[in-house]
Amino acid sequence: MNSNAIRKPLLVVAGLIATAFFIASCASTAPSCAAPQSKNLSSAISTTQSSLLEGCHAHFDRYYDDLMTIAEGDPKPENKREFSQFLVWSADKGLLSNRQAEDYYNRFFNVKFMSLKGDYNNCSHTCPNKQKVLFDMERELSEKERGLLKVSLDNDGYYRADQLYQEVELVLEATCTACSASR
């Protein structure tokens, strides 16, 4: 009778501890956020979308890079559309803002340079930071090489971006010389 009275509270305490451990173990199970294994871009995008929804959105940059690498293995013009749809989906799901989605797409798949975004005039803003602007453009050109040339086979697009880079370099050199001559 006495031993029964002692055993009951012990069992309750043991049961509570076990439940607490169970709940704690569930809460700390982090998603694996593994890289997509498929070599097919569409399947890889589907896997990535599932992972992103399961809490891996902090790894968006890495997933995007993985998808680009997979697309480089099977380059074709349609890949551009696949990436665009993936980015639109990401913005719809709230994983990216619209501006971020545009930035991701345009840096890799558009001829225009996002590094040239700016609201102030060239004399006052671009010229004092000319070297940085050109450095950022150069880095973006290598992203365009990947997106336009290696992923989408858009050779004309990449060639136009390369020419645009050279033209901007020349025009900025002249414009900034003219701006500084007035000071």
Partner: peptide
């Protein structure tokens, strides 16, 4: 090009 344009409009 210097005063009337932003880098984006220049592009």
């Amino acid at each position: 090009l210097g005063r009337k344009m932003t880098p984006w409009t220049l592009q």
